[in-house]
């Protein structure tokens, strides 16, 4: 009941009181949870969520842009927009998720955008459940997905040889730019080592679908994947 009222208030405020029909725009959180699977390969949300490839999304509503913690390296543009006062709310998140690059041209978020308005509303309804402000909604259970591939602790513990990683990286740099640009090809610099390793093993085992990456990862040994992860993690 309280939640419904908040939804009405918030939507009414954002949309300039466009009417009760649009008050439903903050949508179906259960459906949003399903939609969040697309986001979960980079973002965590819920208890214990950490900054990974993307920043964690707890308390994203009301958070100033580029402020998820010192351990996360944002693009220059996002840092600037945070400094200029960009705060994530329904309106700004809705625009960002619709087309990330339209709002922040150099964002590292390699996501093409969620074009359907209802999808965005559902997703935001789900995420809002993890924000203490503005809604007084109880903290939800952790939903961050288990890793895509089960890797042994030994595999995850391999310390990559950066010099070898630098040589191997030349093959990646034919497509993935050193600058971290992600126009058409995702940026791969500054990823946490573990996420890089898991992603590459997911390609190697053909869990992730991209054929070029399956081919590239398919012939890399565990040590080579660790070497690449170590090299790219430290690139600015």
């Amino acid at each position: 009941m309280i939640r419904r009222m908040l939804n009405v208030l918030l939507a009414g405020f954002l949309l300039g009181g466009a009417g009760a029909a649009q008050a439903e725009l903050l949508g179906d959180a259960a459906r949003g949870e399903t939609l969040f699977r697309d986001c979960a390969s980079c973002h965590q949300v819920g208890a214990g969520a950490k900054n990974r490839v993307g920043p964690h999304l707890n308390d994203i509503f009301g958070r100033r842009a580029a402020s998820a913690g010192d351990d996360y390296r944002y693009s220059k543009g996002l840092v600037r927009m945070g400094a200029d006062g960009l705060v994530w709310n329904f309106e700004t998140l809705n625009a960002y998720i619709d087309n990330p690059k339209a709002l922040v041209s150099d964002t590292r978020m390699a996501y093409r955008g969620m074009k359907d308005e209802t999808d965005r509303a559902d997703l935001l309804a789900y995420l809002r459940g993890f924000s203490a402000s503005p809604a007084n909604i109880p903290e939800s259970q952790p939903t961050a997905r288990a890793s895509e591939v089960e890797l042994s602790p030994e595999t995850l513990a391999i310390v990559g040889d950066k010099a070898y990683g630098e040589y191997l990286s030349s093959e990646c740099l034919t497509c993935h730019q050193r600058s971290g640009s992600n126009e058409g090809i995702p940026g791969i610099v500054s990823w946490p080592v573990e996420d890089f390793v898991i992603a590459m093993h997911a390609y190697k085992r053909q869990i992730r679908p991209h054929p070029v990456m399956q081919m590239m990862a398919g012939r890399l040994s565990d040590e080579e994947i660790a070497a690449l992860a170590a090299y790219f993690a430290d690139l600015e």
Partner: peptide, 14 residues
């Protein structure tokens, strides 16, 4: 197609 645009930017930078 969009990937090919990314590749072009990548390889010419390389």
């Amino acid at each position: 197609y969009e990937e090919s645009l990314g590749w072009y930017a990548g390889i010419t930078t390389d």
